[in-house]
């Protein structure tokens, strides 16, 4: 727990890559079929994203491309660039082998289907 806090602390500076590490914004919603995540990681492409599940912890890491050093002078800065990290503990009702992820326009989408056993079922009522 304390390790996780350190790793995803938004003020952390990762000296190995010379970037800040940010907590990406996320939407999470549940349907009967499962859970869905949308994670905002502007600047991250498919090569830069890593989604990992271990011991019930879903770890999301996004790395931005190193900047080409064109000789521009900074005039005005509202956002800093950096990598992204966030972790979630997921419950045992997720079918871990069926988790899928894709990334487009800097938004990572992850779908986590529920196990068949926990999905709601319609019981057909017969005439007695």
């Amino acid at each position: 727990m304390s390790n996780a806090l350190q790793k995803s602390d938004s003020a952390a500076f990762d000296t190995a890559v010379n970037h800040y590490v940010y907590t990406p914004k996320v939407d999470i919603w549940e349907t009967e079929a499962g859970f869905n995540l949308e994670v905002e990681m502007p600047g991250v492409d498919q090569q830069g994203v890593n989604v990992n599940l271990e011991d019930g912890i879903l770890s999301i890491i996004g790395r931005i491309q190193p900047k080409d050093s064109d000789n521009y002078e900074k005039v005005y800065t509202e956002y800093d660039e950096g990598n992204y990290e966030r972790q979630f503990q997921i419950s045992e009702i997720i079918e871990e082998d069926k988790i899928q992820a894709s990334i487009k326009d800097g938004v990572l989408e992850i779908s986590l289907p529920k196990k068949e056993a926990v999905k709601p079922k319609q019981i057909k009522v017969n005439v007695g």
Partner: peptide, 15 residues
């Protein structure tokens, strides 16, 4: 929350 337990909630405040 039963299903999603955020491991670090402090970060959004820091952001």
């Amino acid at each position: 929350n039963r299903f999603f337990n955020e491991l670090s909630g402090l970060d959004l405040l820091l952001n």
